[in-house]
Design a protein around this nucleic acid. Sequence first.
DNA 1: AGCAACCCATACGGTATCGTATGGAGTCTG
DNA 2: CAGACTCCATACGATACCGTATGGGTTGCT
Lengths: 189, 189
Amino acid sequence: MATAARPAPLDRAAWIRGAFAIVADDGFDGLRVEALAKRLKVTKGSFYWHFKDRDDLFAAVLSEWRDSRIADIRKQTAAQPGQELAALHHTIDVYAAARNRKGIAIEAGFRLWARQDAATAAVVEEVDAERLACTCRLFRVLGLGETEAAARSVLLYAYVFGYSMMQCGRFAMDAAAVKDWIGRQIATG
Amino acid sequence: MATAARPAPLDRAAWIRGAFAIVADDGFDGLRVEALAKRLKVTKGSFYWHFKDRDDLFAAVLSEWRDSRIADIRKQTAAQPGQELAALHHTIDVYAAARNRKGIAIEAGFRLWARQDAATAAVVEEVDAERLACTCRLFRVLGLGETEAAARSVLLYAYVFGYSMMQCGRFAMDAAAVKDWIGRQIATG
DNA sequence: AGCAACCCATACGGTATCGTATGGAGTCTG
DNA sequence: CAGACTCCATACGATACCGTATGGGTTGCT
């Protein structure tokens, strides 16, 4: 049967996945309807079947980002009793990892966009609140007070985001030792 | 004398100032030739007199940003002997200030753009190296070792950048106490 | 087979923006 | 005053993108 392998029909989820891929590669500027369609090897006609317009896609991408980020932080900070400190260091390592640069580009894109769009700002705020709450809980289990747990949580995320946006290539330092020192400073054993 | 107050002719510097204003308000996306001309109450014809093309403007903006950021960090970290710790806390306060959000939008824009443009990446790297060197020098004067001085410098900038990109509004915390705790953690007295 | 629902291609009008071409008003200079 | 130089307006072609209109091919169901 020479069924010429018709490509599987796309659904909304596939379009959203493609949108994330474009944002990761080219930034939010590259997220154009026709460019996305080309990447998925179809035409605009298909896009406007699945989405009302470009804003509809944006909203879907934003919603997907929200859900995936909240699910991810809950997973990363889910610690067995007695393993809270290890979970914190694990979270720092994962989020500050060099391989996470695409994710950081998406983060930064959303946060810049949030400056101009209230709905996006609300989602970013929600994600940040959840992340802070997750690590704050771990710090509190470790016996820290309210303020110090909150402060360490804020420092943790500010560090991982900020570090990912820096270009330290020209600054002479022992990167491993520096990251190690910072990790201990944020989550003390 | 009814000299009808002809507007002063623009020069390159005025265009670059306008470009920064647009980037701060609308992000890099808003930095279009015609929009910028409209803001300066002239037409494109003027723009293409002062600049070869859009990339020429971008390059000029990038160069101006580089120079101003390097001059600024040198000014902020210029400490009288014995005042190094105060200078560090001053730097943290200035860069992490809420009123600095426009500057942060520009920072983030350049750093995202740097992901796609090697020249921009080189400038960001240069600025970061200078900033790290400036604070690193202060930490070393305070008697810290090489690695710890480098680590505290990295943590300092990662924190101020990262914190500016977070939306902590929904996270219940004593913001002042948290910032105070973090400041002490980065630059210990 | 017939019909409906799903998925997509094509063609079109409309807008925004880039860069160029060209001319003109004002100013400076010999 | 004549010409050169500076700075800007206007008009134009070209491109990229949005969203719509419309039709066609597939699949599943009856």
